[in-house]
């Protein structure tokens, strides 16, 4: 995991690659194409790129119109604006119409960094998840971001893909990686505890599992990169085996994936399965360097280790 790359960069590169094979792909942006990385597509395919200016609501509904003509629109902006500002357009123009629009939004979460709370959306997963027909995807690294972008071209229907600003460790081997929408991936096997993570927290979860290993604890790590539809069977299978779960996410705890997993466990398991959560504790973000922010909000491998140990104790008591 020494090499690093931002998921937004991988997305931008994937768009160019896919755009040269499929002329139905069109891309919209709202004056952030340099930051979202759609600029590469814009330069290569200017006639299929639409800069909509700083007007995200119009961008999303325009993407819906393009989808009505058979195009495959990717609409990009910062996640704050694509999912927050334009939520009602995503809900009514796109999802209620069951249109093939991909909301591909970058700079999600507190790892946006220095711009601070006004731009750091920690609610996007919650507000996209609650929309019927919507799929929600979060890649953990650049390899997965590329594979997901490709999968979204093939998938018919509304979808949200959450991308990040910072360079993050490359976890997966590009030559040996396939992404299947709706499938969680078992990243590391273990039997003492299950750590479920996605996005930037997956590399932290892997680090935590390695630390736990040195202390004789065998942790299983699952990447729930498709948040909706959630791969309940993979989660349940692991929960039955380990009997305890830590969920790690760069999102508000309220409305986060931890809630979905808790519901999945309590609805399906008869045995007690304690759960601990590493997430943002219902507070806004702030300006800062990425690593400092992760530390400040407790989104660290150390915290995952601590929660894992606590959870294992709860299991045996």
């Amino acid at each position: 995991m020494s090499e690093k790359k931002a998921t937004r960069v991988a997305y931008g590169e994937a768009l160019v690659e896919l755009g040269s094979k499929n002329s139905d792909i069109v891309v919209l942006d709202a004056d952030l194409s340099g930051s979202t990385n759609t600029k590469k597509f814009a330069q290569k395919f200017p006639e299929r790129f639409f800069n909509m200016g700083i007007a995200e609501q119009n961008m999303v509904s325009t993407a819906a119109g393009l989808a009505l003509t058979g195009k495959i629109p990717f609409a990009s902006s910062f996640a704050m604006f694509a999912t927050g500002r334009a939520w009602e357009q995503v809900r009514n123009s796109v999802a209620h119409n069951d249109l093939n629009v991909k909301i591909a939004a970058t700079h999600a979460g507190i790892t946006l960094g220095e711009d601070g709370a006004s731009h750091q959306i920690i609610e996007d997963i919650a507000i996209m998840n609650v929309i019927p027909k919507m799929s929600v995807l979060v890649p953990a690294d650049a390899v997965e971001a590329k594979a997901m972008t490709k999968a979204l071209v093939e998938y018919q229907g509304p979808a949200y893909i959450r991308l990040g600003r910072p360079n993050v460790p490359i976890i997966f081997d590009e030559n040996d990686f396939e992404y299947e929408l709706g499938k969680a991936r078992l990243v590391k096997e273990g039997q003492d505890i299950t750590i479920i993570a996605y996005g930037v927290m997956l590399s932290k979860a892997i680090e935590a599992a390695e630390k736990l290993e040195t202390e004789g604890v065998k942790a299983e790590v699952i990447n729930v990169s498709t948040i909706k539809p959630l791969d309940e069977s993979t989660i349940l299978q692991s929960a039955k085996k380990t009997g305890s779960i830590v969920v790690a996410e760069e999102h508000n705890r309220v409305g986060g994936v931890n809630c979905l997993i808790a519901s999945c466990i309590s609805n399906n398991l008869n045995s007690f399965c304690p759960m601990e959560v590493v997430a943002i504790e219902d507070r806004f973000g702030q300006s800062g360097k990425v690593d400092d922010l992760l530390e400040e909000y407790g989104l660290t491998s150390e915290n995952i280790v601590e929660k894992a140990k606590k959870c294992i104790k709860r299991k045996v008591s």
Partner: peptide, 9 residues
Amino acid sequence: SIANGVALG
């Protein structure tokens, strides 16, 4: 907005 998208498409 939707009509704009259809017209562009």
